[in-house]
Design a protein around this nucleic acid. Structure first.
Lengths: 104, 104
DNA sequence: CACGGATATATCAGATATGATATAAAAGAT
DNA sequence: ATCTTTTATATCATATCTGATATATCCGTG
């Protein structure tokens, strides 16, 4: 992974850590992060087409800042919230499955 | 939903609640539960083919009881752990996406 | 430029998920 | 039937995720 990409992850709170720690990231851990980032990106795309972050937050019974975190791939956001958010934008299980399947 | 199915969910810790509360479950909430249960079932199938719960727990850096909960669709288990477990059994994002896409 | 709506960042207390442990129950083998 | 392995259930302290709030930054429009 190049430095720029790593810095981006670290800025989002991912504990990519030092080089040696990074090398300890298993393929599974890497894949999990990639799944989260794919969901984030897709969520942002979907949401932007029809509503504002605040509107989505209301549907989700969450808050605008939390939606922002979700869309920005912040490490504090669980896959669970990402999927709940996707569903709140009207995404079907098919579409969600699609996004995950595209990873890797 | 028939009573038998509901009891099953309640036994696993899902707050399906009384009838009136149940009727308040949005389609999104229902879909989320279905996604979790689909992942649970698939995890159990996959894991049984190649290893014991304890072995999977070790790969996951988790514990056997937790794996049991995951496979039994216990409400305390997050989608995140389910997906981590799937990956630990060797599942690809494609396969995971497939399982989710099948829901609904 | 100034204003307003949208999005981003920071912080926090409470809620939920976590792995660990103990132990019970089930399933298999001999 | 007994012994061994595997899986299920219960409990717990700690870690992580949560929505809320305050506030900063961005971005388009007048």
């Amino acid at each position: 992974m190049d430095k720029a990409k790593r810095k981006k992850l670290e800025d989002k709170g991912w504990k990519v850590g030092t080089v040696s720690e990074f090398l300890d990231l298993t393929p599974e851990e890497t894949t999990l992060i990639e799944i989260k980032l794919a969901l984030s990106r897709n969520l942002k795309e979907r949401r932007q087409k029809s509503m504002t972050q605040t509107e989505l937050a209301d549907k989700l019974h969450s808050s605008q800042p939390r939606v922002a975190n979700a869309e920005n791939g912040d490490a504090s956001v669980s896959i669970e919230l990402l999927i709940r958010a996707m569903l709140a934008t009207g995404a079907t299980p098919q579409e969600i499955g699609q996004v995950i399947a595209q990873v890797g």
